[in-house]
């Protein structure tokens, strides 16, 4: 490798030193936790609990008690599966995904029938009502009040940035159903926010 190549490579490594250090520190903590060091796992918990809990909280419709229960479950499961973490993705991504899956599994088990009457669905499908200015709290409440599956799809797609294929796979539905649920969720949100603004 000549000096020109070296000089080109150096900036690449220097691009995100903080991120690299963070990944390294997670990897080291995971390694220590796999060896049975609970203190290391506690550090991972303290570092990532906010993100995992936040995602779960949104999926369960801001039910705080349920979200805490599922977050606890997610970390116990993470401890059990820690040995299977290969480091293909960042630990935070792996853990976040595991937490979301726990919440989705809970959703599937509960299988609450979307208690939305026909009239509401009709409004939702239309989507003519424009989005109105809403406070963050109003938006959060409106999302929480969506039917469970529609809420899960909206949170995963619009908030967490998942693709329809991933959502469909995790929720055991067709890709088309995921798209339809998203459309429905947005329609319901429009309506709810329109009512808030009115």
């Amino acid at each position: 490798m000549d000096s020109a190549t070296l000089s080109m490579n150096i900036p690449l490594f220097e691009a995100a030193p903080a991120r690299v250090a963070e990944l390294d520190s997670d990897t080291a903590l995971v390694r220590r936790a796999v060896a049975g060091e609970m203190r290391a796992f506690e550090q991972l918990y303290r570092k990532h609990v906010g993100r995992v809990h936040g995602a779960i909280l949104r999926i369960v419709g801001m039910d705080r008690a349920r979200a805490e229960e599922l977050t606890q479950e997610a970390f116990v499961r993470a401890w059990q599966k820690l040995g299977t973490f290969r480091g293909d993705s960042a630990f935070s991504t792996w853990l976040h995904r595991l937490g979301v899956n726990i919440a989705l599994m809970d959703l599937r088990v509960r299988r609450e029938e979307d208690a939305v009457d026909g009239e509401t669905l009709e409004h939702a499908a239309g989507g003519e009502v424009p989005f109105c200015a809403a406070e963050r709290g109003d938006l959060q409440r409106a999302v929480a009040e969506l039917p469970p599956r529609a809420r899960a799809v909206l949170v995963l797609h619009d908030v967490e940035g998942w693709k329809h294929e991933e959502i469909a796979n995790e929720l055991g539905m067709a890709v088309g159903s995921s798209k339809a649920q998203l459309h429905r969720a947005r329609g319901l949100l429009r309506r709810a926010l329109g009512e808030v603004a009115a």
Partner: peptide, 26 residues
């Protein structure tokens, strides 16, 4: 709207410290 809903994706710390429960279960 999209930018506002994206902001909902922030971290939310649980109201209670869940660690003692997790450690006990493990």
């Amino acid at each position: 709207w999209r930018s506002q809903i994206k902001k909902l994706g922030e971290s939310v710390e649980p109201a209670n410290d869940l660690w003692s429960g997790i450690a006990a279960r493990i």
